[in-house]
Amino acid sequence: MLGLPRWVGIVASVGALFIVLPLVAMITRVNWPEFGALVTSESSVAALGLSLRTSVVSTALCVVLGVPLALLLARTQFAGQKVLRALVLLPLVLPPVVGGIALLYTFGRRGLLGSTLEVLGIQIAFSTTAVVIAQTFVALPFLVLSLEGALRTVGTRYEAVAATLGAKPTTVLLRVTLPLVLPALISGAMLSFARALGEFGATLTFAGSLQGVTRTLPLEIYLQRETDPDAAVALSLVLVLVAVVVVGLSRGVSERRGSERGGSERSLSERRLSERDQPARGMPL
């Protein structure tokens, strides 16, 4: 193992404490005797259920929209590609409230598309659909970023072999490309789910806070912070635990599939070396 300077470990410890200490401080403020009652109140259960449902739908949308985007960015070259990549990743650095305003002026009653949809009797803003759109807007870059990096890492040699054998592009995509990057796809989807579950700013701006309709768990925590701090802390802990589980599962899937692929590639290399050496072993002296 390559040795590191001692100061690296010291600074790394400070960085770890910077993340861990606020979580520990929050845990120490939880009202444990009443924890069950706090997280199972009617408003809390409704908010948690809405968050889970909308996050699942937005994650599915991230997969449907994000996979083609990642393929386009990783497997093609075209004018304006760098600009498109920057725009796709923009929600990562854009304040969520700004994203909510952008969505409101796109799908709102007087928005770019909302005015036309309003004529057709379709209203998106301040509805459950708006929650899904807001969550998808902020979570989509996580899947695109993970999948594009994996596509560039695996290269195109297996796809080229499949194409030379007569496989159609769709067959190559479904039977070769996607299985190769499946760990990254699963990891990106889980990260997108976690991001959607914790979305606050864009949802509040674009969808509002109607109980049972648009009030997700982060919005419920924000409202409870003023009226019932104990409930806010308890619900925050629930959100942290869900995020930890999702991130842990994401890492586990990536590491397991990565080790399996590494093991299979090593076995293939060893078999090729054995086959190459076999004729030499049978040659007379």
Rank of each mutant, 00 (worst) to 15 (best):
residue 133 I to R: 04
residue 75 R to T: 10
residue 138 V to A: 01
residue 171 T to Q: 12
residue 86 A to N: 12
residue 195 R to C: 03
residue 101 I to D: 12
residue 156 T to H: 09
residue 147 L to P: 10
residue 123 Q to M: 03
residue 102 A to M: 11
residue 144 V to E: 05
residue 183 P to Q: 02
residue 138 V to H: 07
residue 127 S to H: 02
residue 102 A to P: 14
residue 107 F to C: 05
residue 120 L to K: 04
residue 135 Q to N: 13
residue 124 I to C: 03
residue 76 T to E: 15
residue 183 P to A: 00
residue 69 L to T: 10
residue 145 L to C: 02
residue 98 V to H: 10
residue 171 T to F: 00
residue 161 V to F: 03
residue 87 L to D: 15
residue 117 L to P: 12
residue 123 Q to H: 11
residue 122 I to G: 00
residue 189 A to H: 08
residue 119 V to N: 04
residue 137 F to G: 08
residue 109 R to W: 09
residue 111 G to S: 06
residue 175 R to C: 05
residue 184 A to S: 02
residue 116 T to V: 03
residue 196 A to M: 00
residue 134 A to F: 02
residue 150 A to L: 03
residue 83 V to Y: 12
residue 160 A to C: 00
residue 164 T to G: 04
residue 192 S to A: 08
residue 90 L to P: 14
residue 123 Q to N: 04
residue 95 P to M: 05
residue 125 A to H: 09
residue 195 R to G: 01
residue 173 L to S: 03
residue 163 A to Y: 10
residue 98 V to M: 11
residue 109 R to F: 04
residue 70 A to W: 09
residue 83 V to S: 08
residue 190 M to F: 15
residue 164 T to H: 14
residue 82 K to Y: 13
residue 141 P to F: 01
residue 148 E to A: 02
residue 82 K to H: 15
residue 90 L to N: 04
residue 98 V to A: 12
residue 141 P to M: 02
residue 71 L to Y: 13
residue 133 I to N: 00
residue 184 A to P: 07
residue 68 P to E: 04
residue 84 L to G: 12
residue 165 L to F: 15
residue 174 L to N: 08
residue 153 T to M: 06
residue 156 T to R: 11
residue 86 A to T: 14
residue 81 Q to C: 00
residue 74 A to K: 10
residue 77 Q to E: 15
residue 179 P to G: 05
residue 146 S to L: 08
residue 173 L to F: 05
residue 136 T to Q: 12
residue 159 E to K: 02
residue 137 F to E: 11
residue 165 L to M: 15
residue 146 S to Q: 13
residue 75 R to M: 08
residue 158 Y to F: 15
residue 109 R to T: 13
residue 143 L to A: 02
residue 149 G to N: 05
residue 69 L to F: 08
residue 134 A to P: 10
residue 105 Y to E: 15
residue 131 V to A: 00
residue 96 P to L: 08
residue 148 E to P: 06
residue 191 L to M: 04
residue 137 F to P: 14
residue 74 A to Q: 10
residue 113 L to C: 04
residue 126 F to N: 07
residue 102 A to W: 11
residue 83 V to A: 13
residue 151 L to E: 06
residue 145 L to M: 10
residue 148 E to D: 09
residue 84 L to I: 07
residue 139 A to H: 05
residue 80 G to F: 07
residue 95 P to I: 05
residue 87 L to R: 14
residue 104 L to A: 01
residue 90 L to K: 09
residue 166 G to I: 06
residue 114 G to Q: 11
residue 116 T to L: 08
residue 123 Q to S: 05
residue 185 L to R: 10
residue 146 S to Y: 03
residue 102 A to E: 06
residue 180 L to V: 08
residue 88 V to K: 13
residue 124 I to N: 07
residue 72 L to P: 13
residue 123 Q to D: 05
residue 127 S to Y: 01
residue 184 A to G: 01
residue 162 A to H: 12
residue 117 L to K: 00
residue 109 R to C: 00
residue 113 L to I: 12
residue 105 Y to N: 15
residue 118 E to A: 01
residue 138 V to I: 13
residue 137 F to M: 10
residue 85 R to T: 15
residue 97 V to K: 10
residue 128 T to W: 06
residue 145 L to N: 05
residue 125 A to P: 10
residue 125 A to T: 10
residue 133 I to A: 03
residue 109 R to D: 14
residue 84 L to M: 07
residue 178 L to W: 09
residue 186 I to E: 14
residue 81 Q to F: 03
residue 135 Q to E: 14
residue 193 F to Y: 14
residue 173 L to N: 04
residue 196 A to N: 00
residue 179 P to V: 01
residue 158 Y to N: 15
residue 68 P to C: 03
residue 129 T to E: 11
residue 108 G to W: 13
residue 113 L to G: 01
residue 187 S to L: 12
